[in-house]
Design a protein around this nucleic acid. Structure first.
Length: 420
DNA sequence: TCTGGGGTCCTAGGACCC
DNA sequence: TCTGGGGTCCTAGGACCC
């Protein structure tokens, strides 16, 4: 038995935990740079607000419907996510943290819960009570069916849906558009529609070889999962990352190489911090810049430069120098840039670093320097100690006009409760 | 005027090996 | 006119997820 526990309108729910005035009201949370809607409360969805819509297209609608607007605050959402996950870990099942707002629970054969629906309601009650975040629970015999169940649970008053008998599965799949199934996106849904497969039930009942030729092996697994054959195992521990990306759109148009260099340096620096925190080394570096693809009136330009890191490294200074050189190779004068970023690739565990025939420099000195920088920043706050190449003024930085405080992670932003 | 960020997996095709 | 068989590795591109 699998359960998918999925937080409702997660980012909105996090904002509501610390601002009860938002409860019962339509609320949206915006992407970085206050660009698009990335989370909408039930009330906002019912008002016709679609996820992914650019803010400037719906300003009037938001005003007319009195929708509250917040910038995203990933520090807060990440911290609350950890709390939700630790509550879920207390239910004694195997657990896979699938995303910031979802987790699968699994009970192996012979250890299934006696009353799954009642357990689902208990999970829901406890997470709400202990963290303030409302969740939906879907219960079924495979991960894909548990996702379907959670989808239906969102509309159920109890917030729990159980699909453990054939009748319940049949009715849940019969009218479900195939594009709502986990793993079937817009493109594949259109491809399936062309051969007459429009619902999840039709995909389940289609010939497996035909599904494979249409959707490759991943689609075939999805179809089998809908039939109740579990093909997607629970991942108890998150595998090591294979790549680390850090990129941002600029808050204003950027043309100067100097500004791009600051942004690329900052991204490289942040990517290396994340790399070290994960205990990994990077074997490759990719730097990319691009103009605004929506400005069709302007000259378009997008380039990447790749550099091999041999031997693999996690040293910020080393990566900074190479990233700057890579930028020099792709920068073109006269373009109006919108975005820059850095990707670390070919990651391996620090302990398993392959030796190099031509290794030079003092690895131990580098290691101690990086450990010191990380320790200072952990103690005194991010960027207490930073490389000057990352810039100080950063006039290009992103907009965040509606950000709420980091209530749970910064001493100076703790919420205050006044009595009497 | 204003349009996010960070990941994974699979396949096809090219280059190469013996 | 006729031109083998069986592999691996890498990359780009397309699809998906949250």
């Amino acid at each position: 038995v699998y359960a998918l526990v999925d937080c409702n309108s997660y980012y909105v729910s996090c904002e509501r935990v610390f601002d009860p005035r938002l409860r019962g009201r339509p609320v949206v949370v915006l992407s970085n740079n206050d660009g698009c809607v990335v989370a909408a409360s039930r009330e906002a969805k019912d008002a016709g607000i679609r996820m992914g819509t650019p803010l400037f297209q719906i300003r009037e609608l938001l005003r007319r419907r009195g929708v509250a607007v917040r910038s995203s605050n990933y520090t807060l959402y990440g911290d609350l996510s950890g709390r939700v996950m630790s509550v879920l870990a207390g239910f004694g099942a195997d657990m896979e943290v699938y995303s910031i707002d979802e987790a699968f629970l699994h009970w192996p054969r012979g250890a299934e819960p006696d009353r799954p629906a009642a357990l689902g309601r208990l999970i829901r009650r406890r997470v709400l009570r202990w963290t303030g975040v409302p969740v939906s629970v879907g219960i079924a015999s495979t991960k894909t069916l548990a996702k379907v169940a959670a989808h239906h649970a969102k509309r159920a008053s109890a917030g729990v849906r159980c699909l453990l008998d054939d009748g319940a599965v049949d009715s849940a799949l019969r009218d479900l558009p195939v594009g709502e199934v986990w793993g079937i996106g817009g493109r594949l849904a259109r491809r399936l529609a062309r051969v007459g497969i429009r619902t999840a039930g039709q995909l389940r009942d289609a010939d497996t070889r035909r599904v494979r030729s249409l959707l490759t092996v991943t689609g075939q697994r999805t179809a089998l999962e809908l039939r109740g054959f579990s093909c997607l195992p629970l991942e108890l521990a998150a595998p090591d990352a294979r790549s680390i990306v850090r990129s941002r759109s600029f808050g204003r148009p950027v043309t100067a190489e100097r500004d791009l260099a600051e942004a690329v340096s900052l991204h490289a620096s942040r990517a290396c911090e994340k790399l070290r925190a994960a205990g990994l080394l990077a074997g490759g570096l990719r730097v990319f810049i691009q103009t605004n693809p929506f400005r069709t009136d302007q000259r378009q330009y997008a380039r990447q430069a790749c550099i091999e890191l041999d031997p693999p490294t996690d040293d910020t200074a080393e990566v900074l120098g190479l990233a700057r050189a890579a930028l020099g190779r792709i920068y073109r004068d006269g373009c109006v840039y919108k975005k820059a970023g850095v990707m670390l690739e070919g990651l391996c565990r620090r302990g398993s670093r392959p030796g190099s025939l031509f290794a030079s420099g003092d690895r131990e000195r580098s290691r101690r320097l990086m450990a010191t920088i990380d320790a200072v920043n952990a103690r005194w706050g991010s960027e207490s100690l930073a490389y000057a190449a990352c810039g100080v003024e950063r006039t290009w930085r992103m907009r965040r006009g509606h950000r709420t405080p980091c209530y749970t992670t910064r001493w100076d932003e703790l919420p205050e409760v006044r009595c009497g």
